[in-house]
């Protein structure tokens, strides 16, 4: 295990450290401490950013939410504004680990649309798909910190579902998040995200485009579920086979879409 531990007083100091040499960054520790115990990162000093309160905030302004990287998952669950604007995010967060893990784990290591990376004297901001390169791989450089994540307020209809082997503390087999608005009998701004069925979280873009192309019907929902299942590229592992995962994408996407039929009707 590494023997050096530094706790910077502010973001500025943290970024200076990161520029001077390579560190292992410690936030909530729920991944990193397990890795340390396994004997990984032996020679790297630890930079404990968990107390940088500058990076622990939830701000909402002009239809945009910005969340500091060190905001804990529990912080999100007790946010009134997120409860109003992004229940789909909270539904997903509620499924992560246990109370203890959510009290420790931070959002910076997780999903959301846009990621801002701070490095001394420079900040870069990018869409999430550009940030994620593959399982546990991102574009983050060793001199950079994740500063915050942001997203535009999602439309009114929001749905999240996670399939695991049991209810508590299960690593997901597949998950889906779905948001949409409604206009003149059609879905508007539909987004379909699929988790654990590709190297990173993906959007089912063909299904999205198809669903917006004409007024929603029950047949379209079934076809969209099929499309999303084809867009996934799952693997077989200890939790499930690839074929099962594909079927579950179909089931979960259609389940998320059925309530839209009623809402669409009301928007006509």
């Amino acid at each position: 295990m590494s023997l050096e531990y530094i706790r910077p007083r502010n973001v500025e100091e943290a970024l200076e450290c990161l520029l001077s040499r390579t560190f292992k960054i410690l936030a909530g520790g729920t991944d990193l401490v397990i890795q340390l115990r396994e004997g990984r990162h032996k020679d790297l000093p630890i930079l404990d950013i968990s107390r940088l309160s500058e990076l622990r905030f939830i701000r909402e302004k002009d239809g945009k939410t910005v969340i500091g990287a060190l905001t804990t998952l529990s912080d999100l669950l007790s946010s009134e504004s997120l409860r109003r604007t992004a229940p789909v995010l909270l539904a997903a967060v509620r499924e992560i680990g246990s109370v203890q893990i959510r009290n420790m784990g931070t959002i910076g290591t997780r999903f959301c649309q846009i990621v801002s990376l701070g490095r001394k004297g420079r900040t870069r901001t990018m869409p999430l798909p550009d940030f994620l390169l593959g399982p546990c791989k991102t574009v983050l450089e060793s001199c950079e910190l994740i500063h915050s994540v942001s997203f535009s307020t999602p439309p009114v209809y929001q749905h999240f579902e996670k399939l695991g082997e049991r209810k508590a503390q299960a690593i997901s087999i597949a998950s889906t998040a779905l948001v949409s608005g409604f206009k003149n009998g059609r879905l508007k701004g539909i987004r379909v995200a699929l988790g654990s069925v590709a190297p990173t979280v993906i959007r089912a873009k063909q299904a999205e485009a198809f669903l917006e192309s004409r007024p929603l019907t029950p047949d379209m929902i079934l076809d969209a579920g099929e499309m999303a299942a084809q867009e996934a590229s799952p693997i077989s592992d200890v939790r499930a086979t690839a074929a099962y995962r594909r079927k579950m994408v179909m089931a979960m996407v259609t389940r998320g879409l059925w309530p839209c039929l009623k809402e669409v009707g009301e928007s006509r």
Binding site: R7, G29, T30, V33, S74, V99, Q100
Partner: peptide, 13 residues
Amino acid sequence: GKAVVSCLMLAPQ
């Protein structure tokens, strides 16, 4: 005041 798992918290924290 918050429940945490002490096996995943480094002592200096």
